[in-house]
Design a protein around this nucleic acid. Structure first.
Lengths: 216, 216
DNA sequence: TAGATTGTTAATCGATTAACAATC
DNA sequence: TAGATTGTTAATCGATTAACAATC
């Protein structure tokens, strides 16, 4: 079997997003051509991407929106709720706790950590704030979570990452500018807004569009 | 001349980031091999990417950190300050206003807009909040800006985008989940945290790493 | 059946990497 | 000069798109 390109997996999430929109609009059937138009993609690419994971369509007919959506969710592992643990309840952290899109798409915060002793014990958005030193205790209870969201200051980032890894968490969404050093079996996604801004700067300066139509 | 791949431009920003770190550490000279190691890239790729824009190194010697950094900044258009205008001063908006990495890398907010009449006229992080209806007035004064940062609710996104475009702004960093419809000559970068989370979900579920080592 | 659309192979395209002459 | 490293070409690799048989 051929290797599945990472980028194809990422596109599945895009397809799922648009299928959800179709589903909400009561559309039951969609062709690769129609879906491609919505996603700004190529119909052949959609069919190819899907083919990596199975056969989800009906020849001569198209794809049943609901069936395909459920199939993709299963493939992506998003046919369940994922629990998030926030590290760093500053401006960005608070914004992330209240970020509606997370809840809408099945991501819920179950724990939050901050270094500030005055914050510890208080609640933000219904989540009690703990010290990151207590992570091992917290994940034994209702504060258990699957994915760490790192929004601390740069100085605390690597430290926190180590505690996260030691506690047995294997996935980190990293909003700090630090390139985290973690074991091989820990997945890290780096989010850097400034890189996106640089793309806009280049585009504005040169007039040549280097933005990406689609988020990654 | 060959077309420059978008991805190469994005990588320049990565190189610049690491060159800045080297510069801060007092390092004066770096080879493509050393820089590649820092960036997690391939030395041949670095040399190739640079070659799209000129010759910045010295054969047998390497690259002078400061010279290359300045050259890259000029190429990227980041050898200047860029002014940002915020739309939507909610949780996320406030977090962005206070986001240190922006200021550090030459991006400063000069204007902020919100629909909430109670907020209008007040100051957040030293920036006076206006109504987005008044954008044309605001950009005539000290609130003038180059790039719009869109952090409104989904329902206001397209509306705001149209006002932004009408006011003559040609670049939007879009934090809303809406796929904005804008004229061809307007650049849009979409930021979608949930896509990143989906990559982590897939990686955790399948054990196959589809995260990207480097932010885009 | 005729029309439509998938699944899949083959062709194209583009990006990455290796190799090496140029040259400090 | 000998060693090192760039700039650039050629080779490789992988991803995208086109084409079409399969089939509803």
């Amino acid at each position: 079997m051929h290797k599945i390109p990472n980028i194809a997996v990422i596109r599945l999430a895009l397809y799922a997003k648009h299928l959800e929109m179709l589903h909400n609009d009561g559309v039951e059937l969609v062709s690769s051509v129609k879906l491609a138009k919505m996603c700004g993609a190529n119909p052949a690419q959609i069919r190819k991407d899907l083919a990596y994971f199975g056969q989800f369509g009906v020849r001569g007919v198209g794809y049943y929106v609901n069936d395909l959506l459920n199939a993709l969710k299963e493939v992506m592992g998003t046919n369940r709720t994922w629990r998030l643990g926030l590290f760093g309840v500053g401006n960005l952290g608070k914004a992330l706790l209240g970020f509606e899109q997370f809840a809408q798409r099945g991501f819920i915060f179950t724990a939050a950590f901050d270094k500030d002793i005055d914050l510890v014990g208080t609640e933000v958005q219904g989540i009690e704030i703990s010290q990151s030193e207590d992570i091992k205790e917290v994940i034994k209870g209702p504060g258990c979570f699957d994915i760490a969201v790192l929004a601390t200051g740069a100085d605390r980032a690597q430290d926190c990452a180590m505690r996260i890894v030691e506690a047995g968490i294997h996935a980190i969404l990293n909003f700090t500018p630090i390139r985290l050093v973690v074991p091989e079996n820990v997945f890290v996604e780096n989010v850097d807004f400034t890189v996106r801004l640089h793309a806009l700067c280049y585009s504005l300066t040169t007039g040549s569009d280097v933005t990406q139509r689609h988020p990654r």
